[in-house]
């Protein structure tokens, strides 16, 4: 009987602990405070700028072709 109550109380404590954890939503604040997220932003921005320059160059080549006719 004693052991039963012991495990029961243990379970209740465990349940409360998990509840306490669930109420706090984990966000990637650590990633941002260390400053490393800026590297990712820079990489994605660079890829996008590259794509835009590529699109502009396609546009220009097309214009040349259109002017030929």
């Amino acid at each position: 009987m004693k052991r039963f109550f012991l495990t029961l109380s243990l379970l209740i404590i465990l349940a409360f602990q998990t509840f306490g954890q669930a109420s706090e939503v984990e966000m990637a604040t650590g990633l941002r405070t260390s400053g490393k997220i800026y590297v990712v932003v820079a990489v994605v921005a660079l890829i996008f700028i590259g794509l835009v320059i590529y699109l502009f160059s396609i546009d220009r080549r097309l214009k040349k072709l259109e002017n030929q006719d």
Partner: peptide, 20 residues
Amino acid sequence: LYSIIGGFLIPVPALPILHE
């Protein structure tokens, strides 16, 4: 470009399941 930079860096609501 603005949306890429802003999308990564602006503060967003902290929600369960969704997170970042």
